[in-house]
């Protein structure tokens, strides 16, 4: 299953690892931020409806 990477295994694997990690972090942060924004918006909308 695992391809034979030869003497460059470390470089290739870490390149894939670092990149996927960075992409995952970006995705995770974006999702967390969006969740928070949605929750805040819902909260603010309820607040205005109650007051207004």
């Amino acid at each position: 299953m695992m391809p034979e990477l030869g003497k460059y295994a470390f470089e290739v694997l870490s390149a894939y690892g670092v990149s996927l990690l960075l992409l995952a972090a970006l995705l995770g942060l974006s999702i967390a931020r969006d969740r928070r924004a949605r929750a805040d918006l819902r909260h603010a909308e309820e607040e205005t409806r109650r007051n207004g």
């Binding site: 970006l26 995705l27 974006s30 931020r33 969006d34 924004a37 949605r38 805040d40 918006l41 909260h43 603010a44 909308e45 607040e47 205005t48 007051n51 207004g52």
Partner: peptide
Amino acid sequence: LVLYRTGTEIRLRRTRALLARGARGA
């Protein structure tokens, strides 16, 4: 990612506007 994050920013902006309006009304 950009579409998704733009949506987040739009929501943040609207929240801010609502809060500002609430603060003015109170």
